Simulated assay, not measured.
Amino acid sequence: MAPTTTLKNIILAGATGSVGAPILKALLAEPSFNVSVLTRASSSSTFPPSIPTHAVSDAFTEAELTDAFRGHDAVVIATSTTPITKDDLAYRFVNAAVKAGVKRLIPSEFGANNLDPRAQKLVPVYKAKGDLLDYLKTKEAEGLSWTSISCGSWLDWALDPAKSGNFLKIDVANRKAEIWDSGNAQFTVTTSSNTGLAVAQALKNPALSANKQIFLSDFVTSPREIIAALESQTGEKFAIEEKVSGPVVKEARAKFDAGDYNSVYTLLSLSFVSDEDVGYNFAKEQKIWNKDLGLPAATLDEVIKATLEKQKL
């Protein structure tokens, strides 16, 4: 892609999801973008009349996707994890983007370094996403560039049970938590708002972000540090249940291999809170892009404070 190319017409798939919603908000806040969303014809989700929608069937056929993507400069995928692991939808997105003449695609990465063998070994979805990224690279010669965004954990999302089901095994409302293994595993945290802003900034600066893995990190923390911050700000001790991850990881992986794709969420959760090393401490191993993309600073204490205020806890 030529450095002078601009990306103006953006279409977002998965706009109402946990990561899609903050991405949509950030895209709409950028006046240089024309933003539309991809929806299922059967979906009950609604959008303001000012946001164009492109409806496709639940089958998400390549032909339908190609028609929906035509005329767009960039496609952002923020769909959920399960479809990536059990069918070829992600590949249909890529193929349709190429056929439609799209210039940039941001795949549904938003977690680990999906090319890291440690991550791929523990969590099947990381292997699936890594394979997709390798496939995307083969499309560069056909005019489709890409940007992969890895952000670690969204702590604001993970501590909201309505959104994540207490993903990190920390129940703020009831002042209790599970500690897996040592509880000292270090992992990257990026707020959902900064993740959305990073997507918008990457598209606003296409030459900077073309064909690159972008690693975000507001800060690095651990389960015990999060609990300590919660205890400090609430003035209450949390009831701790100590657990060992090994047998649970083995069981969840066996279930996944037997076709229970929902078991991947157990593996995803434990990849953060257990002592399994999947390379989540991005600041230790990768270039961090927060400053390049102009993201505002965020701290653990600020995220905890906002969490407690939002949930009135």
Rank of each mutant, 00 (worst) to 15 (best):
D88F: 10
P83D: 05
A21N: 13
S50R: 05
T85D: 12
E64N: 11
R70H: 15
S80K: 11
S43Y: 09
D58R: 11
K25R: 12
H54C: 07
S50M: 05
F69V: 01
L38Q: 01
T66R: 12
V19E: 11
D73G: 08
L28T: 06
A13G: 12
A78S: 15
T66A: 13
H72P: 06
V37T: 02
V75F: 14
F33M: 05
V75H: 08
A63I: 14
P48M: 09
A55V: 14
V35S: 01
G17Q: 05
S45P: 05
D58N: 15
F60A: 13
H54M: 08
P83Q: 14
R40K: 11
T16N: 11
I23K: 05
R40N: 09
A15S: 13
A78Y: 04
E62K: 15
S43W: 11
L28F: 03
T16W: 10
T81F: 13
S36V: 03
S18W: 06
G71M: 01
S18M: 13
D73V: 10
A13Y: 06
V56D: 01
T85V: 15
E62G: 03
A13L: 10
A13C: 09
L12E: 00
A63P: 04
A13M: 11
V75C: 07
P31M: 04
P31K: 13
A55D: 06
F69E: 01
V37H: 05
L27N: 00
H54I: 14
T61A: 10
H54G: 08
T39D: 03
A13R: 03
A21S: 15
A55F: 03
S43A: 15
K25N: 02
H72I: 08
A26H: 06
V19F: 12
S44H: 09
A29E: 05
A74D: 00
T82P: 11
I10W: 02
E64F: 11
L27Y: 01
R70K: 15
E64R: 14
A59R: 10
H72W: 03
V75R: 02
L27D: 00
L38F: 04
S57M: 10
A63V: 15
A13F: 13
T53D: 02
S80C: 07
